[in-house]
Design a protein around this nucleic acid. Structure first.
Lengths: 247, 247
DNA sequence: CGCTCCCTTGACGACTTTCAATGATCGTGG
DNA sequence: CCACGATCATTGAAAGTCGTCAAGGGAGCG
């Protein structure tokens, strides 16, 4: 029921503006969001972001760790962007098991596979407390759709890279590819590419990579022994990026 | 150099039509294509197809088996649709190996990951003699872009299904998922879902699924022994669809 | 303090890869 | 029409990897 938490900009803005407040108006009303007004999703360049942001509704309360944003099969009414926090995307298989097919971080648009679908194909669950923006589908115009194509194009690229990762039969190779993917993702968002925090647990990682959590543990352990990285709890520090890429 | 083979519709049509011939004019000029004029790519519904088709140039000669349509790194100037035949999509990895990330059949739009990219991210090679349509990027209008979003959305779905397939560690499960994916694809195009021809060899399949070609052979052999399917050469006949789905 | 969830480690077994060799099929050219 | 070569499919045996099952340890929370 995330919709009950939105700051509905139209109710706080002057009449006659088509129901959407100017960005500044939304920002001024956003008490719960720890992001400063100028912080933009990384997916969007500064010019295009304005048009997205202009129509986006900031969610009033964060999604708590473990809470569900949307559930597979729900009707699609909006896209979302992550401002702070992280989500996992999972697909419920017919046999009852669920498979994680993605991890998403700030700046990512949620729902790129669904803009022309009637129902959500995946369930999104917060890995930690997460702040979001909501972009109702009906406010998308042609310019925004054009931007959407670019975002989907990048997401398809990512999916093909994931194919390369998963097609490696060797566990260490898959793990290395996963770490490098995360590293590149963090780096692209202006954070450290060599030192980061894993918001998901080993079971999630193993589910995502198609292995067992024991294997995740062993592989990370052996990588630490080999001097490729060091870890304390969920904090990872990559020591030998080249060696990882060489796998 | 596929561009040298195109039937340039603008040169055969009356002046003053913005350089694009009506579909019938193109069809009339297409001697090499064995498809009758009314045959449409399955990706496109009949209404939307018209706008795509209207701007598409039919390639005069087919791509021969083994020939390359576009190479990874080439500049993107057009999308393609397959009319007859099949392609494999592969990514050249930095270490020199190449990995197959997709097989494509008639009705598919080639280049959905690249519409906003400057360069092709993947290489496309014909598995058999293949006829194509070429859709220059510059003729895309907003209506077609909107349609493109739906196609990309479906392709992303497919990519997530592929994630489910590759995340299965068991060889037989991956093979079953692969066969069912193919079966559904053929069925959706009006062909038999239980009896079809594999245009790719075992090495390609194993590359795609992340295993060895010996394993592909053994797994298909055991499936035949179990009565799940029968094969003669590259012709596959699925005998027990439910059992495959149960994996 | 005790519960739960998660991480860690060990031993065994099943499966896939690897390496090697043979057989089948197809296209080409003599 | 046949012989040849190349590519692909097939099968066997050995070795390595990962999954499985089991148990113990640690961190966080009420």
């Amino acid at each position: 029921m995330p919709d009950s938490n939105v700051v509905d900009a139209s109710s706080t803005s002057p009449a006659g503006n088509n129901g959407f407040a100017a960005p500044r108006t939304i920002h001024a009303r956003c008490h719960a969001c720890p992001i400063k007004p100028g912080c933009l999703p990384a997916d969007l360049d500064s010019r295009q972001l304005t048009s997205f942001e202009y129509r986006a509704l900031r969610l009033r309360r964060p999604l708590r760790a473990g809470q569900t944003l949307v559930r597979q099969g729900d009707a699609v009414e909006a896209l979302y962007t992550i401002r702070v926090g992280s989500l996992k995307a999972l697909i419920d298989e017919p046999n009852g098991t669920e498979r994680i097919v993605g991890f998403h971080f700030p700046g990512t648009v949620i729902g790129l596979a669904e803009p022309e679908q009637r129902y959500w194909l995946r369930t999104f669950i917060a890995l930690e407390d997460t702040w979001l923006c909501r972009i109702p589908l009906k406010v998308l115009d042609d310019a925004m759709r054009r931007r959407l194509i670019a975002l989907m194009s990048e997401r398809l690229q990512q999916a093909y890279r994931m194919h390369l990762t998963l097609a490696c039969r060797s566990g260490p190779k898959r793990m290395a590819a996963f770490l490098l993917e995360l590293s590149a993702d963090f780096g692209a968002r202006g954070l450290s590419a060599s030192r980061f925090h894993l918001p998901m647990n080993y079971t999630d990682i193993s589910n995502y990579l198609g292995m067992r959590h024991e294997s995740v543990c062993r592989i990370l352990g052996s990588m630490q022994e080999l001097g490729l990285l060091s870890k304390s709890g969920k904090n990872i520090r990559i020591l030998d990026m080249q060696a990882l890429q060489h796998l």
